[in-house]
Design a protein around this nucleic acid. Sequence first.
DNA 1: TGAGTAATACTCGATCTGAGAACAACGTAG
DNA 2: CTACGTTGTTCTCAGATCGAGTATTACTCA
Lengths: 250, 250
Amino acid sequence: MTEEEEFLAGYDPGAFPSVAVTVDVVALTIREGRLHVLLVERGGHPFAGWRALPGGFVQDETLDAAALRELGEETGLRPGEGELDRVHLEQLRSYGDPRRDPRMRVISVAYLAFAPRLPDPRAGTDASGAFWVPVDEAGELAFDHAAILADGLDRARAKLEYTPLATAFVGAEFTIAELRAVYAAVWGEELHAGNFHRKVLSVPGFVESTGETAARAGERGGPKPKLYRAGDARLLHPALLRPTREDGVR
Amino acid sequence: MTEEEEFLAGYDPGAFPSVAVTVDVVALTIREGRLHVLLVERGGHPFAGWRALPGGFVQDETLDAAALRELGEETGLRPGEGELDRVHLEQLRSYGDPRRDPRMRVISVAYLAFAPRLPDPRAGTDASGAFWVPVDEAGELAFDHAAILADGLDRARAKLEYTPLATAFVGAEFTIAELRAVYAAVWGEELHAGNFHRKVLSVPGFVESTGETAARAGERGGPKPKLYRAGDARLLHPALLRPTREDGVR
DNA sequence: TGAGTAATACTCGATCTGAGAACAACGTAG
DNA sequence: CTACGTTGTTCTCAGATCGAGTATTACTCA
């Protein structure tokens, strides 16, 4: 036994101050052209009856795994069954105010999830009580979840600019107009169709053509659009910048 | 007593799985034109004798306060005594692999700190064992600290582009050339002096003129440069982009 | 069949960028 | 004290990019 092994064998974990660690997930998707977030209604105390972000305690697993597990439990979807595999998951940040949970010291590691349109979670068993809500109708949330949601939206809006994140909101094959609708929904403003088209195609690795054309045009007419799939770029160069406000505030 | 108060009064904190939470700080500064990181040499097990990021267990305080406290303890500086007040501190991300600490489950919330040149920490009492090391000579670190440092450097390099972060590395009054040296040190490449000058002055709110001129020119000649202080912008519009690599890799 | 809509391509002037040059002010080696 | 090299600052210029608008064509729906 080395000196270090000996030390570890005699180590008492109770010597450390103990806190609980949870993951909370800001899951975003687009439905009917509007950005939605997944919320649950809390059954037990504290904040019984309030809406909250889906989440729970971290078990013997990585933080990423915990976030994916919680998302699966709340939506009723399971990894390996297709839909959950296309979800883009990334850590947002951690929240650790000593009084954010009235029960005890709880540190929450928040995650952002981006998904193409997912089935309604009501169908599932554990997933009753979960539902998609337009982000501007989220209202008051339990704990500090309203602040977490706001931080998540900020991050999502910023990442659309310089990463191909928007492709996580659409299917495997998509049209430029669908991609533009993602930007419009997340940024909350319309984009110039012609310039957007030119820009997207000019950024190397953002999208690549499938050579195919959609089987049908939009409901209100127009030519059949070409189909694209996500390229291999991880950053957009040059970036797709949001329209600048006069006052510089974004 | 309301129903919720009653619930909280009877609540047993031991019902939650318990883990330890630490903060680790990636503290960066610039010395002799090179980017340095603050490291400590570990005294006890595990990883006795290894270099590590400064950090420690979170006490009854916010995460931000814990990071500032750890930084102060390791540098020997105290808040309110000037130098530590100019430090820019922000959360990086959290690390929670179940086996990242051999003792027990430890979640680490990593912070990034940016500071103008600070005094050498050796002078302090607790701070013996801490030292500034050029980031490219950090070598192997305890736990997963090498990965945390790499993530911190990525974040710092990216934030120079679209935030006035560089002003956190210089004094309250600085010259454009000093600011350019910060970019050169963090990005590891020289910048075109003329274009940098034009760009910095054209971004609203990045820097504002003091109207003063430096008392003395540089060691190797040249005119006395004008002095500036940080402006009130929180984001740079337009951004100061890094020179693009041909292959798009950054 | 006609009206309206949308995908895509193109035009044009304003703006921004990188590379380089110009110039004057300064420190230091001799 | 002088010559030289260095540096802060401003300018020029050609190429890339941008926002706004127009043109064309292919489609859907009534």
